[in-house]
Amino acid sequence: MQQPDGCIEPQPDDAVWLVVENAWYLPTFWFTSETDLTIDICTPPSFKDGTWSFVDMELDLFRRSDGHAGVVDQDDWDLLVRSGLVSQEEVHSVEETAESLLTLVEHKVEPLGHAALVWLHSLRHAPT
Results as ranks from 00 to 15, higher is better:
2 Q>G: 01
2 Q>A: 01
4 P>D: 12
9 E>Q: 09
11 Q>H: 15
13 D>L: 08
13 D>E: 09
13 D>H: 07
13 D>T: 05
15 A>V: 00
16 V>K: 06
17 W>R: 12
19 V>M: 12
20 V>P: 01
21 E>Y: 04
21 E>I: 09
23 A>F: 02
26 L>A: 15
28 T>C: 15
29 F>W: 04
30 W>H: 04
31 F>W: 11
31 F>Y: 13
31 F>G: 01
32 T>L: 01
33 S>I: 06
33 S>K: 11
34 E>C: 04
36 D>L: 00
36 D>G: 00
37 L>T: 03
41 I>V: 11
41 I>G: 06
42 C>H: 01
42 C>E: 02
43 T>V: 11
44 P>Q: 03
45 P>I: 14
45 P>L: 15
46 S>T: 14
46 S>F: 06
47 F>Y: 15
50 G>A: 08
51 T>L: 05
52 W>G: 13
52 W>S: 13
53 S>G: 01
54 F>Y: 14
55 V>T: 14
59 L>C: 00
61 L>E: 08
63 R>Y: 10
63 R>V: 11
64 R>F: 14
64 R>L: 15
67 G>N: 05
68 H>L: 09
68 H>E: 13
70 G>D: 13
70 G>R: 13
70 G>I: 12
71 V>D: 05
73 D>M: 08
75 D>G: 00
77 W>K: 09
78 D>K: 00
81 V>R: 07
81 V>H: 00
82 R>A: 15
82 R>P: 01
83 S>Q: 06
85 L>D: 09
88 Q>L: 13
88 Q>N: 13
90 E>A: 12
91 V>G: 10
93 S>F: 03
95 E>D: 13
95 E>T: 14
96 E>G: 14
96 E>V: 08
97 T>L: 09
97 T>A: 11
98 A>M: 04
98 A>K: 07
98 A>I: 09
99 E>W: 06
99 E>M: 07
100 S>T: 15
100 S>Q: 14
101 L>T: 12
103 T>S: 13
104 L>V: 04
107 H>M: 06
107 H>P: 08
109 V>F: 08
111 P>R: 14
111 P>A: 14
112 L>T: 03
112 L>W: 08
112 L>C: 05
112 L>I: 02
113 G>P: 02
114 H>E: 14
114 H>I: 10
114 H>C: 09
115 A>L: 09
116 A>W: 07
117 L>G: 09
121 H>G: 03
121 H>Q: 10
122 S>Y: 04
123 L>H: 03
123 L>K: 03
124 R>S: 04
124 R>A: 09
124 R>G: 01
125 H>I: 10
126 A>R: 07
126 A>Q: 05
127 P>A: 02
